[in-house]
Amino acid sequence: MANTRQIKDRGMNVFFFCIATASITILFMISVFLFMEGLPIFKVVSVKDFIFGSYWYPTSDPPDFGIFPLIIGSVVVTILSAAVSIPLGVMSAVYLAEIARVKIREIVKPIVELLAALPSVVIGFFGMVIVAPFLQNVLDIPTGLNIFNASLMLAFMSVPTICSISEDAIYSVPTNLKEASLALGATHLETIVRVVLPASISGISTAIILGMSRAIGETMVVLMVAGGAAMVPASIFDPARPMPASIAAEMAEAPFRGDHYYALFATGIVLFVFVFIFNIIAEHIAHKYRQVGEASL
């Protein structure tokens, strides 16, 4: 009797372990199928020409499969949106974790969560029908569907990510550390800048990287708002065609297992690798510079 119970217990352990590996399995299958459907394009173009080629004309004859403009488009909207979302997200996090009274915190935190829950297609739609005409009129530019607009919309998608992870990190800075600083005559602000932020910097960095990773992978917003021109932009009011937008817009028309189809999957590989690197960096920071106290992540 004793032994059957032990065997059963070990069996359950193995059972739950197998299910827990589902996430890794899916991740692995994602990479396998991306590569399976994407690699054939490199029979047509070299890796170098694919990544650094500056012409993306997949449907002309002969087609050009250079995704450099798409990569630049993705990088530019991501950096520009980060320029908005990082200060906004971190400042909101500091406010929520350190400054706001409990009552206000209990109202603002759900608001940030609801903002995170807004479907991307709605934000894209909003950028398209409300923000774009507004920008066009106010700034007197040919189109409101451009990098600037897309970055702004993307920023509002990554702010909640940055804010909530940073807030967790800031919130878990041990109280006695803060009290030590306050007791020595530092103001609340000085305590935040000199003690709290340095102590939670690893969590905040993780938050920023994950926020940017969300921005670079976001599809609907850039598809609807960035304007869709597959060329290297000259100004932030030019339209662009980031990688996810290109994949989403063209996949429906690409002939099954044609070169265009393979090229879009290969674009997916590049995007996947970008995000993967972001996540590995975030993971590395979170693991290596583990925060004092009970920082999450």
């Binding site: 969300r214 996810p244 994949i247």
Partner: peptide, 9 residues
């Protein structure tokens, strides 16, 4: 962190 469009692919 996998982008939603990659899930689509």
């Amino acid at each position: 962190g996998v982008p939603s469009v990659v899930f689509g692919l």
